[in-house]
Design a binder for these strands. Structure first.
Lengths: 207, 207
DNA sequence: ACGCCAGGTTAACGACGGTTCACATCGGGG
DNA sequence: CCCCGATGTGAACCGTCGTTAACCTGGCGT
């Protein structure tokens, strides 16, 4: 496997999902970002390796200097998102104190920000999971499940009279709500969009 | 050997929107339903014509006795959904009287029922639109836009202080919420699921 | 009884796309 | 200065898949 790009020391910069180094992203990161964009627009199976190459100014086969296969690209993409989401959600809950309502607000804000920052990844994640090699798909699904469980825990603590099945359905519904941003992109300024989604999500979660 | 397949054979949730003749679906309808199911599970590009054929007990090329091409299958599928949704929404609004709140409740109930009845079609519609020949894609998008506008009108009348952009974002968010049902399938009994989704959707729409 | 057509079948074709290969290039360390 | 590893290129390989072709068959109208 190709050696990973040199890490920026202690890397103080917060990276948005795929942007490991915003200033001068390695070719590898360029490819991942371009691929995410293309996959989101047309679906991973409709995007050729040549398309991805062209998007970063390189021919198709050059991709194989950085990734073992097209599937490996998709796998890394989805694994990163899942891990980021899970870690982020856990952090938010931990940082929000013991109040479930506060935890929910933190989770919603986190998910809204993530969705607005990474619409392409959001789209790819739930569209192309099935195009992953089974082993990777299983890993991603495990991570996703744990992410959902973070929400389910909070929601169940918030409304103990509902069962966990209802909480799970609620969680999925809230994801669907927030993740609708790729469909209504750009019509509203981002802060207004963030506020609107957060309001709607919290209302739905607690209705 | 199989002149006409046994009647209600396919156990899993059959999508009512594709069931033109529920009692004895024509081979053509069988194919559309099986294809919708497969497309929803694996994405249209990952499903071969042989797979669709096998799902209805024939070989791949037999499909071409009923459809001009694989694309034509997908096109008919998506055109039907879009038309059904638009017609249904228009009817609901017309039948709900002049009160925007009542109209919204009717729209929500309609969308929830449709999503619960046709999870496969819901999934295919927003995943495989891009795999459609451009002409068909344009038509579907036109129908979808008019469907959204039905919602936007109601939402804007309900909260005139918000602009239509916010209403549009709200509409998309509500669609995302309700259409999350394929992701949390079967955990709750259907009436409970319908009630939960309706409650959440109305709360989100009016928050 | 007969022929035709709707609907199937298998085999083959052709295009597309992922992947590999053999070869260029270039920049940096011994 | 030269070798080497990293990176990229164009050509070729090959499997998959949509589609077509040629042939079969069983039921139905006349």
């Amino acid at each position: 496997m190709i050696a990973s790009a040199p890490d920026r020391g202690t890397g103080a910069g917060t990276d948005t999902a795929l942007a490991a180094d915003a200033a001068r992203p390695s070719r590898r990161e360029q490819i991942l970002r371009a691929a995410a964009q293309l996959f989101a627009e047309r679906g991973s199976r409709s995007v050729g390796v040549d398309d991805v190459g062209a998007a970063v100014g390189v021919t198709g086969p050059a991709i194989y200097r950085h990734f073992a296969s097209k599937d490996a690209m998709l796998a890394e993409m989805l694994l990163r998102i899942s891990e980021r989401l899970l870690a982020g959600a856990s952090d938010q809950v931990a940082a929000a104190g013991p109040d479930p309502a506060a935890q929910l607000r933190a989770l919603v804000a986190f998910q809204v920000d993530f969705a607005l920052d990474n619409p392409a990844l959001i789209t790819v994640q739930d569209r192309d999971l099935g195009s992953l090699p089974p082993a990777d798909a299983a890993t991603v699904r495990r991570l996703q499940r744990r992410y959902v469980e973070v929400w389910v825990d909070v929601l169940t603590r918030l409304r103990p009279e509902e069962g966990t099945d209802a909480s799970r359905a609620r969680a999925h519904a809230v994801f669907g709500l927030v993740n609708s941003t790729p469909h209504s992109a750009g019509r509203l300024p981002r802060p207004a969009m963030a506020a609107l989604l957060a309001t709607m999500a919290e209302a739905a979660a607690t209705a």
